[in-house]
Amino acid sequence: MSSLAVNEQPAAAATSTKVVQPAWVRTVHWINAVAMVLMIMSGWQIYNASPLFDFTFSKSITLGGWLGGALLWHFAAMWLLMVNGLVYLALGLATGRFRKKLLPITPEGVIADTRAALTGKLSHADLTKYNYVQKLLYAGIIAVGILVVLSGLAIWKPVQLQYLTALFGGYDVARYVHFFCMAAIVAFLVVHVALALLVPKSLRAMIIGR
């Protein structure tokens, strides 16, 4: 049994009392899920006003109804995303969770676990420990999350935050960075949700903690 576990019910089976996801992780996770979905759906509607590529998003999956409505949603949900994201980063660093859960990430470990995953041999017996593929994806999505916010700020304030905008290679390039970060998050979301459904106890752990 992990030393992290809080065992308030000694009679219960060890596995059912082991806290996989502490309350603060579950709280910020679900707030982030709501904020991300709002940002992505309103972002698609904003994209449609001036598409970067040869396609637009179907109105049935966008939020806001028109550009003005989508911008209202986007610039409202951004506060939820940013404040919640900062809380997550602060607590992740302060509690040592990032260090304990995500490090180290070694190339050998990632290769071995990727091979195991693709051949269906990757174990999910212990949810408290992330395998190397999970470590890489979770660390990567945190980086993309930071990048999507920074590129968004660069597009929003290309005069007041012009050094940030310049860092992205200018206003027009920052739009592409913002778009590809969104694409990476959506790709992650597809895999993340699919795997949570394949391993339901991981979804349970993110809801009730155990």
Binding site: G69, L72, W73, F75, A76, V159, Q160, Q162
Partner: peptide, 25 residues
């Protein structure tokens, strides 16, 4: 109504971070 209120809040935030001496590139 909620979104309109947040938009007004965003007006205030933007006025606060507006630097009268920062020139557009």
């Amino acid at each position: 109504e909620m979104l309109k209120q947040i938009s007004k809040f965003n007006d205030g935030v933007q006025a606060a971070i507006f630097n009268p001496n920062a020139l557009a590139p």
